[in-house]
Amino acid sequence: MSIKLDQARAIVSAALEKGREMGLKPLTVAVLDAGGHLVSFGREDGSSTLRPQIATAKAATALALGLSSRAVAAMAADRPAFVASLGAIAPQGIVPAAGGLLVIGPDDTVIGAVGVTGDLSDNDEACALAGIAAAGLATKE
């Protein structure tokens, strides 16, 4: 099973709305399916030019390692050479910073991932969580 377009759109919409509620800088949100393919994307006016790649890489990081990008950041503190080496083999990049979360389906399997960027990483993650919840889905660390 993979994330559906309507679910991905709901995640993007709710994540951006949460950012506006929090008064954050312009956000960019990418939702990937379980295979790492882009399903839905949103970029607010004023987002800087590299944000689409960062949002996609945060989501891809979660999918690649089966962990949130926050957990990968913690891993990088303990194993910096290992995490640094992943960039060369990860087609969408590796971003070890909060804001990339796995999306779990009703049968407890990974159906996709969301990446949010544009503000502080903790705020990015809060918006990703809001998007996932609004779509009636779950995440795991």
Rank of each mutant, 00 (worst) to 15 (best):
S2K: 11
S2R: 12
I3C: 03
A8K: 01
R9Q: 15
R9I: 05
R9H: 08
I11L: 08
S13V: 10
L16K: 08
G19W: 08
R20Y: 08
E21M: 12
M22G: 08
G23N: 14
P26F: 05
A30Y: 01
V31C: 08
L32D: 05
L32F: 05
G35F: 02
V39Y: 03
F41C: 08
F41N: 07
F41L: 13
G42D: 11
E44L: 10
D45C: 05
S48D: 10
T49H: 10
L50N: 05
R51M: 12
I54W: 00
A55Q: 01
A55L: 02
A59I: 02
T61K: 05
A62V: 04
A64N: 12
S68D: 10
S68H: 08
V72N: 03
A73S: 15
M75S: 09
A77F: 04
D78A: 15
P80N: 06
P80C: 08
A84N: 15
A84F: 08
I89H: 12
Q92S: 09
Q92W: 02
Q92F: 03
G93P: 05
I94N: 01
I94W: 00
L102E: 13
L102I: 14
G105L: 12
P106G: 15
D107S: 15
D108G: 12
V110R: 05
A113E: 02
A113P: 02
V114K: 00
G115S: 04
G118M: 04
L120D: 13
S121M: 04
D124Q: 11
E125Q: 15
A126D: 14
C127L: 05
G131M: 05
I132N: 06
I132L: 11
A134H: 05
A134Q: 08
G136F: 09
